[in-house]
Write a protein that binds this DNA or RNA. Structure first.
Length: 354
DNA sequence: CATACGTGGCC
DNA sequence: TGGCCAAGTAT
C-alpha cells in the first residue's frame, strides 16, 4: 500500500469524525454532533452569509436576521429595502438579492426547502458548495462539500501539485473519495473546522491534526506549500467623487441600480467611478461644493480613492435629477449604507461638526 | 474558463 | 502597510 491508499478513505473519515465529536466548534447555526439537525432555514441562511465571509463577521448578522425574520416565510414577506439595509456592511450584496428571491421561491412552495442537492442547486444564490452543504447538514444527504477549507485540507492530504483554480476538479474527486456515506454533514463541518482551526493557511498546527498520519504534505515536511495557487492579477487604482448634499436636517441619498457594484444599496450620489474607469468629476448639481477630504477603500478587484465634496444648506427646489430621498441625519445608521459610503458619511459629519 | 463582486482581520 | 485570505455564485 502506498501513502495515499493507506489513508483508505474510511480511515480519514473515521479519524476526522472522532476529532469532530470532541472538538466541534459551537456556533449559533449549528447543532452539536449526534443531535438533531438545525432547521433548514437556519442552515441555509448561515451558509449564504458565510460565503467568502468569516464566522466572526457573520455572527451578529445571523442573530439580527433570525430575530427579525424567524422563518423563511417571514423573510419572504419582508420589503426589499429592509433586507438590503439589514445586509449592509456584510458585502457581496448580490447575496442579499438572491436571499430574498430564494426565500420567496421557498415560500411559494409552502415554506419547505427541497431536500435534495439537485433541487437546492436550482434555487437563487445556491451554487455547488451551498447546495451540497445544505443537503448534507440540514437533510443528512451524502454530498461532496468543497469550500476553501476543504480545498486546502485535501490539497495537503494528497499533496496536489496542480495549481488552483485549475485543480478544482482533482480536489473534488479526492474529496468525494474520502466523504463517508453516513454523517456526511458532520464530515463536511469537521473538514471546515479543521481547516479553520488546525489546517490553517499559515502556520498549520500539524501536531494537533487528527489526519497528520494520512497527510502527504506533512510527510513531505511542506504543508504550507499547498494548495498551490495561480498568481493574482494586480488591482487597478481608481479615483472618484461622492457628493454630500445636506439640507440642514437631512442628506440626499440615492439607490444604486439593481445589478453591479453595490447593486440595490442606498448610496451617496457619485460621479460614475467604477472598476473600469475613474469618475467624471462631475457632481449632480452646480454646487457650491467644498472639499471634505478623501476616503480610501479596497474592493475585491480595484482600489478606490473617493474624494468627498460637500454642499451644505442645499436648496430643495433644486433636487438632483434621477431620484433619491432626503434622509434624516439622526437616522443615518438605519439607511443601510455600504461601508464605502458609511466611511464617507462619517467624514462629512466630522467635517460639518454634526 | 475568466471575471465581477465587499469587507475586515491578520502579519 | 499592502497583500493575502475567508463556509462562493452568476455570467
Amino acid at each position: 500500500m502506498d501513502a495515499s491508499s493507506d489513508t483508505g478513505c474510511d480511515a480519514v473519515g473515521h479519524d476526522l469524525l472522532a476529532w469532530y465529536d470532541a472538538h466541534a466548534r459551537v456556533l449559533p447555526w449549528r447543532s452539536p454532533p449526534h443531535t438533531p439537525a438545525p432547521e433548514p432555514y437556519r442552515v441555509w441562511l448561515s451558509e449564504v452569509m458565510l460565503q467568502q465571509t468569516t464566522v466572526a463577521a457573520v455572527k451578529d448578522y445571523f442573530a439580527k436576521f433570525i430575530a427579525r425574520w424567524p422563518t423563511v416565510d417571514a423573510l419572504a414577506a419582508a420589503a426589499d429595502e429592509e433586507v438590503m439595509a439589514a445586509w449592509a456592511g456584510l458585502g457581496y450584496y448580490a447575496r442579499a438579492r438572491n436571499l430574498l428571491a430564494c426565500a420567496r421561491a421557498v415560500a411559494a412552495r409552502g415554506g419547505r426547502f427541497p431536500d435534495t442537492e439537485e433541487e437546492l442547486r436550482a434555487l437563487p444564490g445556491l451554487g455547488a458548495y451551498t447546495a451540497a452543504a445544505v443537503a448534507a447538514i440540514a437533510f443528512g444527504r451524502r454530498a461532496v462539500v468543497v469550500d476553501a477549507n476543504v480545498e486546502r485540507v485535501v490539497a495537503r492530504l494528497f499533496a496536489i501539485e496542480e495549481a488552483l483554480p485549475g485543480a478544482r476538479g482533482t480536489i473534488r474527486e479526492k474529496a468525494d473519495g474520502i466523504t463517508p456515506e453516513a454523517r456526511s454533514g458532520d464530515f463536511a463541518q469537521a473538514m471546515m473546522d479543521l481547516g479553520a482551526t488546525v489546517c490553517t493557511s499559515r502556520a498549520p498546527r500539524c501536531l494537533l491534526c487528527p489526519l497528520s498520519a494520512h497527510c502527504a504534505a506533512r510527510a513531505m515536511g511542506a504543508p504550507e506549500r499547498f494548495p498551490v495557487k495561480a498568481p493574482k492579477k494586480a488591482k487597478p487604482a481608481r479615483k472618484g467623487q461622492a457628493f454630500w448634499i445636506e439640507r440642514g436636517d437631512a442628506v440626499w441619498l440615492v439607490r444604486r441600480p439593481g445589478k453591479g457594484m453595490l447593486g440595490g444599496m442606498r448610496a451617496l450620489p457619485d460621479d460614475g467611478w467604477s472598476a473600469r474607469a475613474d469618475g467624471s468629476g462631475e457632481g449632480p448639481l452646480a454646487g457650491p461644493w467644498e472639499s471634505a477630504g478623501k476616503v480610501t477603500h479596497t474592493f475585491t478587484h480595484f482600489g478606490l480613492d473617493l474624494h468627498l465634496s460637500v454642499y451644505l444648506g442645499a436648496d430643495w427646489t433644486r433636487l438632483p435629477p434621477g431620484g433619491g430621498e432626503w434622509w434624516p441625519l439622526d437616522r443615518l445608521d438605519e439607511a443601510g449604507l455600504p461601508t464605502l459610503f458609511a466611511k464617507a458619511a462619517s467624514l462629512a459629519l466630522a467635517g460639518t461638526g454634526d
